[in-house]
Computed example of a mutant assay.
Amino acid sequence: MTTTDPHSTVLQLNDVTRTYPSGKSTLTALDRVTIGLRRGSWTAIMGPSGSGKSTLLNSAAGLDAPDSGRILLNGEDIASLSDDVLTRMRRTEIGFIFQQFNLVAALSAAQNVALPLRLAGRRDANRAAAEALNSVGLGKHTGHKPRELSGGQQQRVAIARALATRPSILFADEPTGALDSASAATVLDLLRALVDEQAQTILMVTHDPSAAARADQVAFLRDGRLVTTLNGADANQIAATLAELETLAGTGVQG
């Protein structure tokens, strides 16, 4: 369980519970989870399959409403917001990075990054897209289409798209899962630099101990509960903790 100073906290989950019906029974995907993310920090979420990782990410991003508890983004309880306000918040305060790059094949890198800005009515979409691509080291590739870029470069375009609105927090779901080891290392270096140099806050779900080791803290879920947190751990320590939890894990919870 992690608590933080509210004046420096971007995201705070307090006693968050989320259940789902399953036939005649109920599955508890999150069980009274409390965790806080300080501004300019990187938190990795790990756990066995079905531990609640995806539910935590979706709930924290306002995509899945909890049964109970509070989720505060910059001090505002997102569960109390209307759908319209929450949608606008996701467009401006939250950035998403996925395992699959989700780029539009027919558009250039710059057009892909500018697209959500244009949909949000930003008049400076082209300038913001160029700045975002430059920040991820792709300033010379703005006119390239996805097929002309490597997997690592495509993921950096996706990161630039997420950064273009200068969000308070980035949610990353297995961001290196589709990459080779060299490309993955480049992406992880970029994420680390965003935290260290731009005070970006990141919440990342991953199954890879090497990726998790780049984070400031690693929070481990088992059967929907936050059971332990490691700070500054290396990949071997993280892998050992994950292996222990996998041995103890129950079944039936969707993660």
Rank of each mutant, 00 (worst) to 15 (best):
M1P: 13
T2Q: 03
P6D: 11
T9S: 09
T9Q: 06
Q12N: 12
L13S: 02
L13N: 06
V16I: 02
R18V: 13
G23Y: 03
K24A: 15
T26F: 00
T28L: 04
A29T: 03
R32F: 05
R32K: 15
T34Y: 04
G40E: 04
G40W: 02
G52H: 01
K53F: 05
N58L: 11
S59V: 15
A60N: 08
A60I: 06
A61R: 03
A61W: 01
D64K: 04
P66L: 06
D77M: 04
L81Q: 13
L86N: 09
R90P: 13
R91C: 02
I94P: 02
F96G: 14
I97D: 05
A106R: 14
A106C: 00
L107R: 04
L107M: 13
L107I: 06
V113N: 06
L115G: 10
P116L: 12
L117P: 10
L117E: 14
A120Y: 07
D124W: 09
N126F: 00
R127Q: 09
A128N: 09
A130C: 04
E131Q: 14
L133T: 07
V136E: 05
G139F: 02
G139M: 07
T142H: 11
T142A: 15
P146R: 09
P146T: 10
E148M: 14
E148N: 08
L149I: 14
Q153C: 13
Q155W: 12
V157W: 00
A158L: 01
L163F: 05
T165W: 01
S168A: 15
D173A: 10
D173M: 11
D173Y: 07
A178Y: 03
D180W: 11
A182K: 15
A182Q: 15
S183Q: 11
A184N: 06
A184R: 06
T186Y: 00
A193Y: 00
V195M: 03
I202A: 08
M204P: 05
H207K: 08
P209V: 07
P209H: 03
S210A: 15
A211G: 09
A212W: 02
D216A: 07
A219F: 01
A219M: 01
A219T: 01
R222A: 13
L226K: 03
V227I: 12
T228W: 00
G232N: 07
A235H: 13
N236Q: 14
N236F: 05
Q237Y: 02
I238N: 10
T241C: 14
A249K: 11
A249R: 12
G252R: 05
V253C: 07
